[in-house]
Nucleic acid binder design. Structure first.
Lengths: 340, 340
DNA sequence: CTGAAAGCGCTTACAG
DNA sequence: CTGAAAGCGCTTACAG
């Protein structure tokens, strides 16, 4: 492996100048810079990250901990996130060190990776309320960025969608169409995004004097959406509209309505939040789904950019990004059915 | 962060001696060693891995590239593999750098990671025949270990199960039970494990003068197993026994038999290869599945150990491990039904 | 049994 | 615009 010393030797330059030429310092003579670049190229020079890290105190690596369930499964959206993340990191010549958390203690995996002393910062996702990982990382004074937020008005960098507004937008749409019996099929409330969806739903319903009589939490699978909706639709005074946590859950809800002989949107309206995953596309539903849309693939790049900026010394509060999902009207929502 | 220098200063010792005491060199006076250890403990000393790596020339990191499909999904067994891998690596104080390959060129992601110059070696999985990644890594002279093999008699370190024997064991079992019309519902033959399963099947059938009349490749989902079996069972002179690529595929095959009004094992026998994934457990089938069993979770530790050994200079040929799956007889196999 | 010195490959004041 | 020197924290011949 070529080193700065070798390049310098070839050209009769000091390692200092070679280093500066390669790192784009302005005071280097352009002719010198060109020669250095050419020689570096020819020798196949690659900076030794380890040496750089020793002197700069930064490793050019960030850590991410993947939470694995006891049955060795994990969030399916991870692959999409991972893909975007590594691509965005590569643009900053930064690599991703991945570790796994299958511990009871959510902090343990972070502690272990930190002890090994090789990451500059962390990317966290799926925060719970007052997430203990955040207290720990703050205490250790190590930079991090969150996909999501673990509290209101946090002081750390984050990228999040406004999950509260996701629910209020959905309820507002349905209420304006005349619906009064509106159900929420929500995701996991162990996470703040689930809590925020529920809170937004309750607030929007209360704001219109509607009773939040149908709320099911912790539905992540199509089957769970199906079952929850089937139960509700079998009751007297069943809901006429559903707010669904995801397009996957919406698929189950739609099937349940069909199995009850109900048509969409004549008898039942459905709104879903759409992460725009390639597997379950809202426009491929029949009828196409009305959604609040905020593609998951949009998250990795800003997340990475926020973290990199903070690692370079930017203020955390300058790297907090809240995105409002876009409401897209399609065929799955319509006026409340007239009472027969 | 405490350093060797600080410990030495406290005790009036040189960093040399402190280093040797902490690293267990035999020539250190025991009393000195005890003092050094105590002080290191008290100061919360953690060796600076980056500095260690600069001087030893090793990064303490290995790379792995995850292949992502165009729809952003990936092999579900990845999470299990990843969990075992990071745990095994941690035992050697080694970390995992993960990157993603969504490229047409399978070598590209390796090249990029290598350019960044931070991994000591690679762990590869899912090899295809004469895998181009292997030619590339050999050319670059960078150590790697394979989960699987891309050719017969390779010269690199690997951990693999004998996929050829998986098929021959299954066919032998069924043939000895009198079955002559035996079907293979095989996995993806773009990979060598799929090719080996098919080759073993064909060879075992030929060895008994049986025609390999029912072979379906590239079945990975339950639904694909179901469809393939349903098609076969709808023909005249349908197979009486199925060799299944996985327990998941076997679930589909079993359902197809049921839907055709056939009972197991009276009318149809089923053998599956069992990676012992927590999601689809062979003993929970009804009847319990007869399997060739080789838990996927057994692979990461030997893989890591082989790679670490080779990184320390061991000969590749001393770290080639071929494991034979265990044949476990359960309720899904029985004698061939007598001709009515 | 212990220490002074060299060096891993780089960055960055400091000096010219 | 360029270079000599110091130093990041460690390991390891070499010397005593």
């Amino acid at each position: 492996m070529a080193t700065l010393k070798q390049i310098g030797k070839e050209l009769g330059l000091s390692v200092t100048t070679v280093s500066r030429a390669l790192n784009g310092f302005p005071e280097v003579n352009e002719a010198t810079r060109v020669k250095v670049r050419e020689t570096a190229e020819r020798l196949g020079y690659r900076p030794n990250r380890i040496a750089q890290r020793l002197v700069t105190g930064r490793s050019g690596m960030v850590g991410m901990i993947l939470k694995i369930k006891p049955d060795m499964s994990a969030d399916q959206t991870f692959f999409q996130t991972l893909t975007g993340m590594t691509a965005a990191l590569a643009a900053h010549e930064t690599d991703l060190v991945l570790a796994v958390d299958q511990d009871a203690d959510p902090v343990q995996a972070y502690r272990k990776l930190l002890e090994r002393n090789i990451v500059d910062g962390f990317i966290l996702n799926a925060p719970v309320r007052d997430d203990p990982r955040i207290a720990y990382l703050k205490d250790q004074n190590i930079p991090f960025v969150l996909h999501g937020r673990d509290r209101d008005a946090p002081d750390y960098p984050f990228y999040d969608i406004d999950n509260h507004a996701v629910s209020t937008d959905a309820v507002d749409l349905l209420a304006n169409l005349g619906h009064r019996r509106i159900a929420l099929i929500n995701g996991e409330v162990q996470y703040t995004f689930g809590l925020d969806r529920e809170a937004g739903f309750r607030q929007a319903m209360a704001g219109r004097d509607l009773a939040p009589g149908w709320i099911v939490n912790d539905a992540t699978l199509e089957q769970q959406g199906y079952q929850a909706a089937l139960d509700m639709l079998s009751q007297a005074n069943a809901p006429t509209a559903f707010v669904c946590f995801s397009t996957l859950v919406a698929a189950g809800v739609m099937q349940a309505a069909r199995d009850k002989g109900l048509s969409i949107p004549k008898d039942v309206s459905i709104v879903a939040h759409d992460d725009a995953l390639p597997q379950t596309r809202a426009i491929e539903f029949n009828p196409a789904l009305t959604v609040t849309r905020a593609p998951l693939r949009d998250a990795p790049e800003p997340l990475v950019n926020h973290l990199i900026s903070v690692l370079r010394g930017a203020a955390a509060t300058d790297h907090q990004q809240l995105v409002r999902a876009e409401l897209i009207l399609r065929g799955s929502t319509g006026p409340v059915p007239s009472v027969p």
